[in-house]
């Protein structure tokens, strides 16, 4: 495909959020273009997860705009935002632990399906048709992870999965909402080097085969280097650097945010 000019998918304009007197996100501008992978990095407490909570509607920003394909998302309830095409995973896993693996993925298709409860109770042909679609879509999303979430695992409860598989299942569940953009909150946290490598490849595959645009929070610099088209560094809610991985990683402000300045270090 020839290089078309990048279309902005998600735009944040002058976004601000404070908890009481504590400013967590301060006048943040950010653009994520279609089919781009953008990483958000920053020290703990920089406001990365708050940024995700603002985009997905869990918090309402004090000020600023959040636009998805030009339409504002501010003030919509989270489920409506997800239905418009924003899906996320959680840093601390929040699976439906006592539901089966496939039920987790099927449940997330609620917003994209229509058959109401009366038709479900009567098991109309429409219910059968849609239920088959839901099941097929769930299997398709799970097969995205190779052998990891296949076969006998479908009917096992989610709590029986290994930690890494639970992280994968969260991504599968987010994919099941059929989003435009995936927000991944530390997808490689707590994984061993092999699994981290797999996640890096997977995120690339999500874009290439899944066609998703991806905004990812990550601490593991190998992952960030491996996947990012662009890296944004946050500190105390302010964007302190943006650009390619090399540019951001060597930016003195970023080094300072992570390690402190030389002057304060020697004092």
């Amino acid at each position: 495909m020839a290089d078309a000019p990048p279309q902005p998918l998600l735009e944040l304009k002058g976004l601000s959020m404070a908890f009481g007197g504590l400013v967590v996100i301060d006048n943040l501008d950010l653009v994520v273009n279609e089919r781009e992978i953008v990483s958000v990095i920053g020290p703990n407490g920089a406001g990365k997860t708050t940024l995700f909570n603002l985009i997905t509607g869990i918090y309402r920003p004090d000020d600023g705009e959040i636009l998805l394909e030009g339409n504002s998302l501010v003030g919509l309830p989270p489920h409506a935002i997800t239905q418009r095409g924003v899906a996320r995973t959680f840093q601390t896993l929040r699976l439906f632990l006592n539901m089966s693996v496939i039920d987790n993925v099927m449940a997330a298709q609620y917003g994209k399906t229509k058959v109401d409860i009366v038709r479900s109770m009567l098991r109309t042909p429409g219910w059968w048709k849609e239920e088959r679609q839901i099941r097929a879509r769930a299997e398709e999303k799970l097969s995205f992870f190779g052998q990891r979430l296949m076969g006998y695992r479908w009917d096992q409860p989610a709590y029986s999965l290994s930690y890494a598989n639970r992280r994968r299942l969260e991504i599968a569940r987010a994919m099941a909402t059929e989003p435009e953009i995936l927000l991944l909150d530390e997808p490689a946290a707590g994984m061993n080097p092999v699994e981290t490598h797999e996640i890096t490849e997977l995120i690339g595959k999500l874009r290439e085969e899944g066609g998703y645009t991806i905004l990812v929070i990550e601490h593991d610099m190998h992952v960030v280097e491996g996947i990012s088209d662009r890296v944004v560094a946050l500190d105390h809610g302010v964007k302190i650097a943006e650009g390619s991985f090399e540019q951001v990683a060597t930016d003195p402000k970023v080094v300072e945010a992570y390690l402190g300045t030389k002057a304060t270090a020697t004092k």
């Binding site: 959680f90 699976l95 439906f96 569940r173």
Partner: peptide, 16 residues
């Protein structure tokens, strides 16, 4: 069942 498990996660997974 999803909202009984985790209402916030359910809401973010497009469930009103």
């Amino acid at each position: 069942r999803a909202l009984r498990e985790d209402p916030l996660a359910a809401e973010v997974m497009s469930i009103p």
